[in-house]
C-alpha cells in the first residue's frame, strides 16, 4: 500500500517530528513518516539528535550532583512565615 503513502519532503518530515515525539503522529502520516526514516539518513540523524537533546536537557537540569542542598535558608523560612502573619 506504499503507493497510498505520499512521500514526505525532509521539511515536512522535520515538522512531523513535533507530533512524533508527542506520540500523536496522525495515523495517515505514520506510514509516510516511517518510509522517510528508511530512505533518509540525514533526517534520521536529526531525529536522533533531537531525542538526545531532550534527554540531555533533563539530565543537565536535574542531576543530583548539581542540586543545591534542599535545606531552605532559615531567613527565607522566617520571611515566609512572617508574610503569612501579615497577610492573615
Amino acid at each position: 500500500m506504499t503507493d497510498q503513502n505520499p512521500e514526505l519532503t525532509c521539511q515536512q518530515f522535520v515538522e512531523f517530528i513535533r507530533d512524533h515525539m508527542e506520540g500523536s503522529l496522525p495515523a495517515d502520516v505514520s506510514a509516510s513518516f516511517k518510509a522517510h526514516i528508511a530512505l533518509c539518513p540525514p533526517c534520521v540523524d536529526y531525529l536522533d539528535a533531537l531525542h538526545k537533546t531532550r534527554d540531555i536537557a533533563k539530565l543537565a537540569c536535574t542531576h543530583p550532583d548539581d542540586e543545591l542542598p534542599p535545606d531552605l535558608p532559615e531567613g527565607l523560612v522566617r520571611a515566609v512565615l512572617a508574610s503569612r502573619r501579615k497577610s492573615s
Partner: peptide, 14 residues
C-alpha cells in the same frame, strides 16, 4: 530548506 523541501545543509548528528 531548499525549495524542494531538502535541507540546505545536512544536519549535524550526535
Amino acid at each position: 530548506y531548499l525549495d524542494d523541501g531538502h535541507m540546505l545543509e545536512p544536519p549535524t548528528g550526535w
